[in-house]
Design a protein around this nucleic acid. Structure first.
Lengths: 249, 249
DNA sequence: CGGGTTTATGCAAGGTTTTCCATTATTTTG
DNA sequence: CAAAATAATGGAAAACCTTGCATAAACCCG
């Protein structure tokens, strides 16, 4: 990866998350800490970011620091996103839904990944679009303002025409008896179609939502190939899911 | 391999991958590093790419200094957007393209407007989506990273199914003889389809682009219903267009 | 045709940039 | 305060760039 390219990437990350960690960057881009530090220094001298111990901050965030709750769930979602991104290999076709966790995933895709992402989530598409090496395919239809994804028969019929390697869904509720469930009829229809159109279903969720339930069922637990939370796979709350045959990361 | 041919190939690679490595190119084309470097230098001087240590990047990567010119034309585009928004009435179906002027229009829509907007431009959709009373319909297909709109046969066939009241296009060049013209093949195809699918075509442009021309024709001047610039309709530069039967705001 | 000129390319020497590594401060945190 | 994490420093190797020069092909023009 070229130096300028790398610095552009760092800047992008800083503007996106308002902060970056040196160690995250060096692992992600696969260079030494020194290199990252030099990059941060140069960018700081150019006034593009503010260097601090351990990483850097966005210059616009100089004054008010964000609330602790935000930082907290940001960290969880960051962990989930990181785990999820390891499943994606070059050349894959990936179908994704919407939701904050998916967007976090979109933001933290490694820059050298070459893949095709298909989605109806406008915020997710926005992120994919700014990635240097990802092809983006938009599923068109009417936008549901609540969820900011396209919903409707047109979208469903487009999704049915696909057969992708992976499907990432951020989920709102999951338990052993009812599987994955949600509370928005239109969104559930889209999710169902996505599940049917891909070979592996990967569900992302923060642990808080495990063993909860919502009115409308999305799919049975058997459909899930992999479940990703911020917890280590050894956590006891995940044990019943592993026993049910789900891979847990 | 000829020099021109080689440079065209390099440019193609840069636009495709957003970056190239000198060593990759020299091995692939089978010439010395020096030759490649000279090519890159020439292309960089022509502004076709940005040369960096180790290779070159796409000019779209240069987010660096984009203030002075942008601020300058920002005011102009605000004026255009304001004029354009007066044409939209409650209940209308409006088809829009992409580009900075259209996004400015999207931002300055009056909040009490109830209408349906249809577009393939991701940044424009983003704005429409945040409007309280607008329904948004997304035209799906593959995203063209340059223009950040969806392009392709799927998009065109969806557009063809429509019959909207208005079509707003931001245009890159217009003159009396060749009408509206542009420089991106895929985008032109989309624009053509949009024009055919709506009853009135409204073209938005800053005055700077009037009486200029680009390689690919979008439509004849007769297709234009209304032309909007930041100038008052009495400006002499607009007179020939009024005489050609175009409404000017 | 033929000699002079321009253009394109390769080669080599020396300089610069980038990166990593090891070592030595410095800061953070419990 | 002490341990751990992070930062700065200097050196060394690799990759990369610049420059000047040599060669050969293409071109021009009388």
């Amino acid at each position: 990866m070229l130096k300028r390219e790398r610095q552009a990437y760092i800047l992008h990350q800083v503007n996106l998350h308002n902060k970056v960690l040196s160690t995250d960057l060096s692992q992600h881009i696969n260079v030494s800490d020194d290199t990252i530090r030099r990059d941060l220094q140069e960018l700081a001298e150019a006034g593009k970011l503010i260097k601090v111990h351990g990483g850097a901050l966005s210059p616009s965030f100089h004054h008010g620091n964000q609330s602790s709750k935000d930082v907290y769930s940001y960290t969880q979602k960051r962990i989930i996103a990181q785990k999820a991104s390891t499943l994606i290999k070059d050349g894959m076709f990936v179908l994704t839904g919407g939701g904050t966790t998916i967007i976090e995933l979109a933001k933290s895709l490694p820059p050298e990944l070459h893949a095709t992402f298909i989605s109806g989530s406008i915020p997710a598409i926005y992120e994919y679009m700014n990635h240097p090496n990802i092809d983006v395919i938009v599923i068109g239809d009417k936008i549901s303002k609540n969820s900011k994804i396209t919903v409707g028969l047109e979208a469903i019929s487009r999704i049915r025409q696909l057969r992708t390697d992976l499907c990432f869904l951020g989920i709102n509720a999951i338990n052993l008896d009812n599987g994955v469930s949600d509370n928005d009829w239109d969104v559930v229809q889209i999710k169902k179609a996505m599940i049917e159109s891909s070979q592996r279903l990967v569900c992302l969720t923060i642990a808080e939502k495990i063993n909860s339930q919502q009115p409308i069922q999305v799919c049975d637990i058997k459909k899930i190939d992999t479940l990703i939370t911020e917890l280590p796979p050894t956590d006891p709350i995940l044990e019943p899911y592993i026993k049910a045959g789900i891979k847990v990361l």
